[in-house]
């Protein structure tokens, strides 16, 4: 039992960046295809990150570099807790801490746009937070436990009763999935190409670490998607994996349906959706089932 846990944790630590990168690549490619372009390879994010790392460290890293690394640490910790089968709530907490430290890192960078980006990142996290809590609560009400071990290995398949929550999860917290760490703003429009993101204010190596941290975070978020289907049986495991990949595809498509939304409207709509879908779904679970 313990060996299994250790193995799965190690597997996460080693493979998650690649998994995250490939899922990012899938999203980017599908998004490009939807725009009529031929996007790059699926493994292009890995190439990008390696190219960045090859350039070495610049002179600018300081406290912000430290906080980017702390953010990476908490993203990895979130995944470790998840793959060790522990509390789902702790996972969400660590993900949140990861984002918080990224916000701090961005606030500490010298540029004005970086601090704006930090604020927007905080706002994005706040927009996504209620939905995350509701997903966790939905799992608890349906499957009776907060532990990932119980949710993944046993218990009823949570997908259909939690359909509303799943839809909300696709739309809202997965907003983080749609945006690469280099673009912590609304989906990039051409005229916004020059002031891209908070990661632009970082030093080279820190930007690479920021990207890797975002891959870990994405892997954890996709793992939560997997939880919606997981049952412990082989069939549902396969279904879960397929659906996770389909989610990446879906994100690419959603990115093109949702236009470069005004930040205010995006926030309000996120909360409104979370409120409506969440209440409806939770009421259904509580009362009908």
């Amino acid at each position: 039992m313990i060996i299994k846990t250790i193995l799965s944790v190690l597997a996460f630590i080693v493979f998650a960046p690649f998994a995250g990168a490939i899922l990012t690549g899938i999203t980017r490619k599908i998004s490009a295809r939807a725009q009529g372009r031929d996007g790059g390879d699926i493994t292009q994010p890995i190439s990008d990150c390696i190219a960045l790392l090859q350039k070495g460290r610049g002179e600018n890293s300081g406290i912000q570099g430290y906080y980017v690394k702390v953010s990476l640490f908490f993203n990895v910790l979130a995944g470790v807790l998840f793959y060790a089968g522990m509390d789902l709530l702790m996972t969400i907490a660590c993900l949140g801490l990861g984002i918080i430290f990224m916000v701090i890192a961005a606030s500490v960078s010298g540029t004005y746009y970086s601090r704006l980006g930090a604020d927007r990142l905080a706002r994005e996290m706040v927009a996504a937070a209620p939905m995350m809590f509701m997903v966790a609560i939905g799992f608890y009400v349906r499957c009776g436990s907060f532990d990932v071990k119980d949710l993944a290995m046993s218990g009823p398949v949570a997908f259909l009763p939690l359909l509303g929550l799943f839809a909300g999860y696709m739309l809202i917290p997965c907003g983080k999935l749609r945006r690469s760490s280099f673009e912590y703003r609304m989906p990039h429009a051409m005229y916004q190409k020059d002031m891209n993101s908070i990661a632009d204010a970082f030093d080279r190596k820190d930007a690479a670490i920021c990207e890797i941290g975002s891959w870990y975070e994405k892997t954890v978020l996709y793992s939560i998607t997997y939880l919606f289907f997981a049952n412990g049986t082989l069939l549902m495991t396969a279904v879960g994996v397929v659906c996770t990949v389909l989610t990446a595809v879906l994100q690419g498509i959603i990115e093109n349906i949702e236009p470069a939304a005004d930040g205010r409207r995006a926030f309000k709509s996120a909360w409104l959706w979370a409120f409506v879908i969440g209440i409806v779904n939770l009421v259904i679970i509580y009362i009908i089932i």
Partner: peptide, 16 residues
Amino acid sequence: WDIERLGFRNTGNPSY
């Protein structure tokens, strides 16, 4: 024209 398929990427930081 899409240079992204050729591996190019636009960036906002000259040091990258």
